[in-house]
Amino acid sequence: MLLIRESEENTKNHFADGNIPGFVHLYIGEEAVGVGACAALDPDDWIASTHRGHGHCIAKGLDPELMWAELFGKRDGYCNGKGGSMHIADVEAGMLGANGIVGAGPGLATGAALTLDYKGIDDQVALSFFGDGAVAQGQVHEAVNLAATWDLPAIFLVENNQYGEGTPVDKQHNVENLSDTAGAYDIPGVTVDGMDITAVNEAVAEARERAVNGEGPTFIEADTYRYRGHYEGDEQVYRDQKEVERMRERDPIESFRNRLIDRGELTEEEFETIQTEVEEEIADAVAYAQKADAPAPEEAYEDMFAETPPEIQQFATQAMPDGGHGGESR
């Protein structure tokens, strides 16, 4: 959680300084969900993420250096600079990508679970993170229905951060709890405190147990809160900053730290040491990414297909060294 918080604070600053192109959606405040969930998974399990995916990447064990290289659009980034913040992926690590389409993850996770089921792999699962906004998307329901009907080893985890972009959750949904929708598919639906890493962890562990036992998917809603806007630059006209301050009093990192200290499992000094290590790790990752090479213009023509068709090859041969494109004619 500390690593995610530190990385995201740096992301905020580098975005503000103009070092990161495009859009970024920060995970600050929601760390307990990603970390609690991924801690209940095995390294071989699959996850599908969202546009707010940086926390999921770190929680799944992706390398901050390669993640930061991707944020800066560098060749060494996870996606060779082609994906950026909204598409960081590492299929090798079981991470099926952040996703710019709200509600796309559950379909992909259902597909990963289908692969597991089809191949008879009975000790792995696929978990999809998605937001409260995505619960209004038709494709989410189609995916959950398919996974439930086929008893696939899937876990559907809603990160209810109380706002679908700029609209509060109660103006987007008729149900009291988003987990109530699980009833439509006759699968367990639970709502847990998403600011409490232990609560999330236990719910996902239980869902995982069901999944690997062939009992099918579980729908979990984790109530959480994002401290920043929907995207960096969002003026947040839809909420009072006093609400943000109130929620910060339930900060997932603070509360977990205090609990560990109260239980005598952590000292203030140990916490400070971890904090310092985390700052150094992210500083190193940022420094690595800043020094990494930008992709060459002609790399824009790579990675479209396993077998590149002549239609694309002809443009690749015309690529300009200054980044001007060569697609004027065939």
């Binding site: 599908a48 992909l108 259902t110 990963a112 696929a126 494709q139 995916a143 009907t149």
Partner: peptide, 18 residues
């Protein structure tokens, strides 16, 4: 099921995973 979005999404995830 009669759910093109659901099974096309699932097929995509399945193809990406082996």
């Amino acid at each position: 099921p009669i759910a093109e979005a659901g099974f096309m999404g699932a097929a995509t995830g399945a193809a990406a995973t082996g």
